[in-house]
């Protein structure tokens, strides 16, 4: 089925509840090809033009769920939502970015999904459209399962506040080419509220927000001046974020040849700490 509008798609889904909606298909079709998923029917969302664009709406941007990563990586988008653009640019090779969509990234909810920490840091909300109409849900509630998608619902739009301030997305991977994140950090400044918001991706099933660290570091920033921060405070922020998001490593001899889980956990903490410190540094540069 290839509905041409969101309403048609919702109707189609209501008519055949076993059908699986597919947008870019970069995750879904891989699972189908691998024989992990055998959907009764597919509802292709690729022809729904209203979902493929984005627009401003009183201080926020309304992003269609069908926005591709390639589109989000373009300069006009990057000028307003730089971290989201960075995340989109770093997500996989061009073939995947051309097909994969923002909505797909959210619905797949892969722990290493690149846009997820950015949306969490931006405190984005999503519009879920079902037979009874639409409802707004914070993206973190959707991801954590606090307010999951109901049967017959489609992800229509993502609403992101426009903060007009630096935003950074950093990702640590095992290779120079596109790769899954070992850890990622999204950090946004909200000068109006004098807040720093940060989310750590790929270290847990959902992006984590180190709220205390955010609060502490926003107190260290000279908001009225040049927004500078003491390098020591930035480093401490990194440690704070890492301690909040990565569990205490088990005690073990880290010097042995066999690094084991202990060394890997120590490594992950340091990675998150370095990413958070660098992200803050870049945001305040």
């Amino acid at each position: 089925m290839l509905p041409a509008s969101l309403d048609e798609a919702v109707t189609a889904l209501a008519a055949s509840p076993a059908a699986v909606p597919v947008a870019g298909g970069t995750d879904l079709m891989g699972a189908v090809n691998a024989g992990l998923l055998r959907p009764m029917a597919l509802i292709g969302l690729g022809r729904i033009n209203e979902l493929r664009g984005w627009q401003y709406q009183d201080g926020t941007a309304q992003l269609g769920a069908g926005l591709t990563h390639a589109r989000m990586g373009r300069p006009d988008f990057a000028a307003l939502m730089p971290a989201l653009a960075e995340a989109a640019r770093s997500a996989g090779p061009p073939q995947v970015r051309n097909a994969g969509t923002l909505g797909g990234n959210i619905v797949t909810a892969d722990p290493a999904g690149d846009t997820l920490p950015v949306l969490a840091a931006l405190e984005a909300t999503v519009t879920l459209v079902g037979p009874e109409g639409g409802r707004e849900v914070p993206v973190s509630h959707l991801l954590t399962g606090l307010d999951p998608m109901r049967g017959g619902e489609l992800l229509g739009y993502v609403r992101v506040p426009l903060l007009h301030a630096p935003q950074v997305f950093l990702k640590a991977t095992g290779r120079t080419g596109p790769s899954r994140a070992a850890a990622s950090v999204a950090l946004v400044l909200d000068p109006a509220r004098r807040a720093v918001r940060c989310a750590v991706g790929a270290v847990a099933p959902v992006p984590l927000r180190p709220l205390e660290a955010e609060q502490w570091v926003s107190g260290c920033i000279d908001w009225d001046g040049d927004r500078a921060i003491d390098p020591a405070a930035a480093a401490a922020f990194g440690e704070y974020v890492a301690a909040a998001c990565v569990p205490e490593p088990p005690q073990a001899d880290p010097e042995g040849l066999e690094g084991g889980p202990a060394a890997a956990a120590v490594r992950l903490r340091r990675t998150v700490s370095v990413l958070a410190r660098r992200a803050l540094g870049r945001a305040l540069k």
Binding site: S90, A172, T173, T176, R278
Partner: peptide
């Protein structure tokens, strides 16, 4: 082209 790739987390100072 730093370790971590273009637009990655690499920092020339490190």
């Amino acid at each position: 082209l730093l370790p971590g790739g273009p637009g990655g987390a690499g920092d020339p100072a490190a």
